[in-house]
Amino acid sequence: MNALDSRLAAPDRDASPAAAARDQIRESAPSGSVRLGNKSKGAAAKPHPGEAVVDIDRCNPILGNPFILQNHRDDARRAEVIALYKKKYDADLARSGPMAAATEQLAERVRAGERLILMCWCHGAPLDKPCHGDLIKSQIERILAFTCD
């Protein structure tokens, strides 16, 4: 097969040396992961064997959401407390505060191959509601996506 035939056979594959190096790093890197779980009794989103539990509810003094949601059915208030958390979290990330450091540590654990489950009370059945944990998980994924090894 000549070079043109191989490009036609796999048109979406980047054949550059840099792409080959990235592919090799990805293949040799440990495959950690991060997902959200639910602490509620009977919830489906529970830790799987081999997953490390990280509590991110209000008991976590750094990553817990300090803004209180009295009624878990109040979707307007839920959106409000998540927005308040986002404002606090974004400000902390901008100044490399303790929330940023804790998030970086979680990303490092995933990079090292750990499988993490961030446990709160909102995510997954039975409630399956938005959670401040979505923000933390997204930031971990951003950190991992833009890391050069």
Rank of each mutant, 00 (worst) to 15 (best):
F67H: 13
A52N: 06
A45G: 08
L84H: 05
P47W: 06
D92T: 10
L84R: 08
K46P: 07
A43L: 12
K39I: 09
C59P: 04
K39N: 03
E80Q: 06
E51T: 01
N60I: 07
M99E: 13
P49K: 06
N65P: 03
I56D: 01
L84W: 06
A79S: 08
Q70S: 13
I68S: 00
K88C: 08
A100K: 04
K86D: 14
P98V: 13
P47A: 14
I82H: 03
D75L: 10
G64C: 02
V53A: 06
Q70E: 13
A94Q: 13
D90V: 15
D75Q: 10
P61W: 02
E104G: 03
G97H: 07
Q70K: 08
Q105C: 05
A79C: 03
D90P: 04
H48D: 13
I82D: 01
A45M: 15
G50C: 12
I62M: 11
A43E: 05
L63W: 05
P49S: 08
A107S: 04
L69F: 03
F67L: 10
G42A: 15
A107F: 04
D90A: 15
A100R: 03
R78S: 00
H72F: 11
S96C: 06
K87L: 14
N71L: 11
E108Q: 07
V54Y: 03
R58C: 02
G42P: 08
V81F: 02
N65Y: 04
H48I: 14
A45R: 10
I82G: 02
Q70R: 07
G42R: 09
I68M: 01
A44T: 15
C59G: 12
N65I: 05
A91S: 09
L106R: 01
A44C: 09
N60V: 06
M99G: 11
G42M: 13
N71H: 07
T103C: 12
A83S: 11
P47Y: 05
V54M: 09
S40H: 10
P66C: 08
A76T: 10
L106G: 01
P66N: 11
C59Y: 09
P61E: 14
K88I: 11
K46W: 11
D75K: 05
V54F: 09
L84K: 08
L106I: 10
S40Y: 11
A44R: 12
R73G: 11
L84F: 05
G97T: 10
P47K: 09
P47V: 10
N60T: 03
R78P: 00
G42V: 14
A102C: 05
Y85V: 03
K41D: 14
H48M: 15
I68L: 11
A107C: 00
A101G: 10
A44P: 08
A52H: 01
K88S: 13
N60R: 07
I62P: 04
R58K: 07
K46G: 09
D55T: 08
K41F: 13
A101Q: 14
H72E: 09
R58F: 00
K39W: 06
N60G: 03
L93G: 00
P61F: 06
P49M: 10
R95V: 15
I56P: 02
A45C: 14
G97I: 12
S96E: 15
D92K: 03
E80G: 01
P66F: 13
L63R: 00
A52T: 11
A102Q: 05
A52Q: 10
D55Y: 08
G64S: 01
E104Y: 01
I62L: 11
